[in-house]
Protein backbone atom coordinates (compact mmCIF):
# COMPACT_ATOMS: atom_id res chain seq x y z
CA UNK A 1 0.00 0.00 0.00
CA UNK A 2 2.90 2.34 0.77
CA UNK A 3 4.12 2.10 -2.82
CA UNK A 4 0.59 2.67 -4.10
CA UNK A 5 0.10 5.80 -2.03
CA UNK A 6 3.53 7.01 -2.96
CA UNK A 7 2.64 6.61 -6.63
CA UNK A 8 -0.58 8.55 -6.16
CA UNK A 9 1.25 11.41 -4.50
CA UNK A 10 3.89 11.46 -7.18
CA UNK A 11 1.39 11.35 -10.02
CA UNK A 12 -0.67 14.21 -8.64
CA UNK A 13 2.14 16.19 -7.06
CA UNK A 14 1.92 19.25 -9.27
CA UNK A 15 -1.85 19.48 -8.91
CA UNK A 16 -1.63 19.01 -5.17
CA UNK A 17 1.01 21.68 -4.93
CA UNK A 18 -1.24 24.09 -6.80
CA UNK A 19 -4.04 23.30 -4.40
CA UNK A 20 -1.71 23.85 -1.47
CA UNK A 21 -0.79 27.19 -2.98
CA UNK A 22 -4.46 28.07 -3.35
CA UNK A 23 -5.10 27.23 0.29
CA UNK A 24 -2.05 28.83 1.82
CA UNK A 25 -1.33 31.60 -0.67
CA UNK A 26 2.35 31.16 0.05
CA UNK A 27 4.93 28.87 -1.52
CA UNK A 28 6.81 28.18 1.68
CA UNK A 29 3.63 27.31 3.53
CA UNK A 30 2.52 25.24 0.57
CA UNK A 31 5.74 23.24 0.80
CA UNK A 32 5.17 22.66 4.50
CA UNK A 33 1.62 21.58 3.78
CA UNK A 34 2.80 19.18 1.11
CA UNK A 35 5.21 17.67 3.58
CA UNK A 36 2.51 17.14 6.15
CA UNK A 37 0.22 15.72 3.50
CA UNK A 38 2.86 13.23 2.45
CA UNK A 39 3.45 12.23 6.03
CA UNK A 40 -0.23 11.79 6.74
CA UNK A 41 -0.76 9.77 3.59
CA UNK A 42 2.26 7.56 4.03
CA UNK A 43 1.81 6.92 7.72
CA UNK A 44 -1.80 5.80 7.51
CA UNK A 45 -3.23 8.86 9.16
CA UNK A 46 -5.56 8.90 6.20
CA UNK A 47 -7.87 6.16 5.06
CA UNK A 48 -6.84 4.27 1.96
CA UNK A 49 -8.09 5.58 -1.38
CA UNK A 50 -10.75 3.82 -3.39
CA UNK A 51 -9.83 2.70 -6.85
CA UNK A 52 -10.59 5.38 -9.40
CA UNK A 53 -10.84 8.09 -6.77
CA UNK A 54 -7.20 8.44 -5.94
CA UNK A 55 -6.87 12.05 -6.98
CA UNK A 56 -9.80 13.34 -4.94
CA UNK A 57 -8.52 11.23 -2.03
CA UNK A 58 -5.13 12.93 -2.21
CA UNK A 59 -6.76 16.35 -2.33
CA UNK A 60 -8.87 15.45 0.69
CA UNK A 61 -5.79 14.35 2.62
CA UNK A 62 -4.13 17.63 1.79
CA UNK A 63 -7.14 19.65 2.83
CA UNK A 64 -7.46 17.76 6.10
CA UNK A 65 -3.81 18.43 6.80
CA UNK A 66 -4.40 22.09 6.14
CA UNK A 67 -7.37 22.17 8.50
CA UNK A 68 -5.34 20.37 11.16
CA UNK A 69 -2.65 23.01 10.90
CA UNK A 70 -5.20 25.72 11.43
CA UNK A 71 -6.69 23.93 14.38
CA UNK A 72 -3.28 23.79 15.98
CA UNK A 73 -3.20 27.53 15.65
CA UNK A 74 -6.71 27.73 17.10
CA UNK A 75 -8.06 29.50 14.09
CA UNK A 76 -10.85 28.65 11.73
CA UNK A 77 -9.62 28.21 8.17
CA UNK A 78 -12.99 28.83 6.59
CA UNK A 79 -15.38 31.58 7.46
CA UNK A 80 -19.02 31.13 6.55
CA UNK A 81 -19.21 32.25 2.97
CA UNK A 82 -22.39 30.53 1.96
CA UNK A 83 -24.98 32.95 3.28
CA UNK A 84 -27.43 34.23 0.68
CA UNK A 85 -27.61 33.73 -3.02
CA UNK A 86 -25.24 35.34 -5.46
CA UNK A 87 -26.72 38.34 -7.23
CA UNK A 88 -26.94 37.85 -10.94
CA UNK A 89 -24.83 40.28 -12.92
CA UNK A 90 -26.71 41.60 -15.88
CA UNK A 91 -23.83 42.83 -17.92
CA UNK A 92 -20.10 42.53 -17.86
CA UNK A 93 -17.45 43.95 -20.14
CA UNK A 94 -15.61 40.84 -21.26
CA UNK A 95 -12.73 42.92 -22.55
CA UNK A 96 -11.58 43.22 -18.95
CA UNK A 97 -11.14 39.49 -18.70
CA UNK A 98 -7.71 38.18 -19.42
CA UNK A 99 -5.59 35.51 -17.83
CA UNK A 100 -3.43 37.92 -15.87
CA UNK A 101 -6.39 39.80 -14.46
CA UNK A 102 -8.06 36.57 -13.40
CA UNK A 103 -4.87 35.30 -11.79
CA UNK A 104 -4.51 38.44 -9.74
CA UNK A 105 -8.18 38.47 -8.82
CA UNK A 106 -7.95 34.89 -7.62
CA UNK A 107 -5.29 35.96 -5.14
CA UNK A 108 -7.70 38.50 -3.69
CA UNK A 109 -10.47 36.00 -3.10
CA UNK A 110 -10.92 34.54 0.34
CA UNK A 111 -9.62 31.02 0.59
CA UNK A 112 -13.03 29.31 0.54
CA UNK A 113 -13.93 30.86 -2.77
CA UNK A 114 -10.46 30.53 -4.20
CA UNK A 115 -10.28 26.83 -3.48
CA UNK A 116 -13.59 26.00 -5.12
CA UNK A 117 -12.49 27.82 -8.28
CA UNK A 118 -9.22 25.97 -8.03
CA UNK A 119 -10.92 22.60 -7.74
CA UNK A 120 -13.49 23.05 -10.50
CA UNK A 121 -11.94 25.43 -13.02
CA UNK A 122 -8.27 24.73 -12.66
CA UNK A 123 -8.24 21.13 -11.53
CA UNK A 124 -11.32 20.05 -13.41
CA UNK A 125 -13.17 18.26 -10.63
CA UNK A 126 -16.88 17.65 -10.99
CA UNK A 127 -19.14 19.30 -8.45
CA UNK A 128 -19.64 15.99 -6.65
CA UNK A 129 -15.91 15.40 -6.39
CA UNK A 130 -15.31 18.91 -5.13
CA UNK A 131 -18.07 18.42 -2.57
CA UNK A 132 -16.39 15.27 -1.35
CA UNK A 133 -13.08 17.03 -0.97
CA UNK A 134 -14.63 20.01 0.78
CA UNK A 135 -16.97 17.96 2.98
CA UNK A 136 -19.98 19.98 1.88
CA UNK A 137 -23.16 19.21 -0.10
CA UNK A 138 -23.06 19.53 -3.88
CA UNK A 139 -25.46 22.45 -3.65
CA UNK A 140 -22.95 24.30 -1.52
CA UNK A 141 -20.29 23.83 -4.15
CA UNK A 142 -22.67 25.16 -6.74
CA UNK A 143 -23.56 28.28 -4.79
CA UNK A 144 -20.04 28.89 -3.54
CA UNK A 145 -18.63 28.61 -7.03
CA UNK A 146 -21.18 30.93 -8.56
CA UNK A 147 -20.51 33.45 -5.82
CA UNK A 148 -16.76 33.08 -6.31
CA UNK A 149 -17.08 33.86 -10.00
CA UNK A 150 -19.23 36.85 -9.24
CA UNK A 151 -16.60 38.10 -6.82
CA UNK A 152 -13.93 37.59 -9.45
CA UNK A 153 -15.89 39.67 -11.91
CA UNK A 154 -16.37 42.37 -9.31
CA UNK A 155 -12.69 42.41 -8.42
CA UNK A 156 -11.66 42.64 -12.05
CA UNK A 157 -14.25 45.13 -13.11
CA UNK A 158 -14.64 47.10 -9.94
CA UNK A 159 -18.37 46.64 -9.98
CA UNK A 160 -20.63 44.63 -12.19
CA UNK A 161 -22.67 46.92 -14.29
CA UNK A 162 -26.34 46.38 -14.86
CA UNK A 163 -27.75 45.83 -18.26
CA UNK A 164 -29.57 49.13 -18.37
CA UNK A 165 -26.36 51.06 -17.87
CA UNK A 166 -24.69 49.06 -20.56
CA UNK A 167 -27.54 49.67 -22.90
CA UNK A 168 -27.32 53.40 -22.30
CA UNK A 169 -23.63 53.27 -23.10
CA UNK A 170 -24.21 51.34 -26.29
CA UNK A 171 -26.98 53.63 -27.48
Amino acid sequence: MLRGIESILIEHWAALFRYALALTGDREKARDLMQQTALNALTSRATAPQTGREQSWAFRVLRNAWIDQYRQERASPIVDVDIGAAQTPRYYDDRLLDDMAVREALQQLDVAHREVVMLVDIQGFRYAEAAEILHVPVGTVMSRLSRARLLLLEIIGGKVEVLEKARRRRS
Binding site: R31, P89, L152
Partner: peptide, 29 residues
Protein backbone atom coordinates in the same frame (compact mmCIF):
# COMPACT_ATOMS: atom_id res chain seq x y z
CA UNK B 1 -26.06 34.63 -23.91
CA UNK B 2 -23.73 37.42 -22.78
CA UNK B 3 -23.66 36.04 -19.25
CA UNK B 4 -22.83 32.57 -20.50
CA UNK B 5 -20.10 34.02 -22.69
CA UNK B 6 -18.67 35.88 -19.72
CA UNK B 7 -18.72 32.77 -17.57
CA UNK B 8 -17.12 30.70 -20.30
CA UNK B 9 -14.35 33.22 -20.73
CA UNK B 10 -13.84 33.55 -16.98
CA UNK B 11 -13.63 29.79 -16.60
CA UNK B 12 -11.08 29.55 -19.40
CA UNK B 13 -8.98 32.34 -17.92
CA UNK B 14 -9.07 30.73 -14.50
CA UNK B 15 -7.94 27.45 -15.99
CA UNK B 16 -5.12 29.27 -17.75
CA UNK B 17 -4.01 30.93 -14.53
CA UNK B 18 -2.23 27.85 -13.28
CA UNK B 19 0.50 28.85 -10.90
CA UNK B 20 3.94 27.84 -12.05
CA UNK B 21 4.93 24.65 -10.32
CA UNK B 22 8.34 23.03 -10.69
CA UNK B 23 8.37 20.05 -12.99
CA UNK B 24 9.90 18.02 -10.21
CA UNK B 25 8.53 17.75 -6.76
CA UNK B 26 9.84 20.68 -4.80
CA UNK B 27 12.24 19.49 -2.14
CA UNK B 28 10.38 18.96 1.05
CA UNK B 29 11.95 20.89 3.88
Amino acid sequence: AAQVATLTRLKASAAASLPVVPQIMPPLP
